[in-house]
Amino acid sequence: MSTTPATYRAPTPYDSPSTQIGPAGSPVRRGPRDDVPALTFTALVRVEFVKMFNTRSGFWLMASIAILSVLASGAVILFGGENAITYANFSAAVGMPIAILLPMLAILSVTSEWSQRTGLTTFTLVPHRGRVITGKALVTVSIGIVGILVAMGVGALGNLLGAAVHDIDPVWEFGFTDLLMVMLANVLGMLMGFTLGVVLRNSPAAIVGYFVYSLILPNVFGALAFYQESFADVWPWVDQFYNVTSLFERVPSDQEWVQLAVTTVIWMGVPLLVGLRFLFRSEIK
């Protein structure tokens, strides 16, 4: 085979690259380009949105929220008795998978820039790391809220279907405030994932970190309170996961709101600030 460019893969472009590189009428490439529009935050948010869906892992993470909600609702109808057919049960069933999946989504939205090394391109095209991270946070939380609504909607359909199957009147007993609390709990869960992503900038480490936070720490706190009675009074002031989880069950009292706020500052506010500081100064390789 000849090595002339004309016979290499796509013939035409190789013959005259000059006519192909830029749009017609821009043969001269000198000096700064003040003719181009500046980057916009809207475009950045749109890009982050597209990036959430156009990878295989991102797509299936999203799809699994819908799929698992359907499966969870189906399980309540199949295995729950007549008494189990209440919206509270359906929302708890669909809430379980999303409470785990949404933080993962938040983690990967940040860490994939490092673990998949896409940050090399992302932060070159947009050399303002704060803007990129803010865009990611906005997109992640928005997708999370839509995800919650989808899951709760599937749960509502499940409740209707279950009531029809068992030939009873659907039991709702789930108000707007309850929905808000579920939203808040999930958004806080996502922000915790986001924080771990910012601090650790590594997908496996951040995912493990989230499970330490949600599975191991609560047990450690429980054990502490069991062996050290004085700790029991301090517990609600240090265990954020417990405070977040109780949002699924009830609207917090005034004191519980303060406890939620204090633990959120300790577990998310401070690490996020420190993590962002390092992230802004770090070297992206």
Partner: peptide, 15 residues
């Protein structure tokens, strides 16, 4: 340094 799970066209589209 590209996301292994993204298509070539999508990488250019994002950019």
């Amino acid at each position: 340094a590209q996301h292994a799970g993204r298509t070539g066209r999508d990488i250019l589209k994002v950019a």
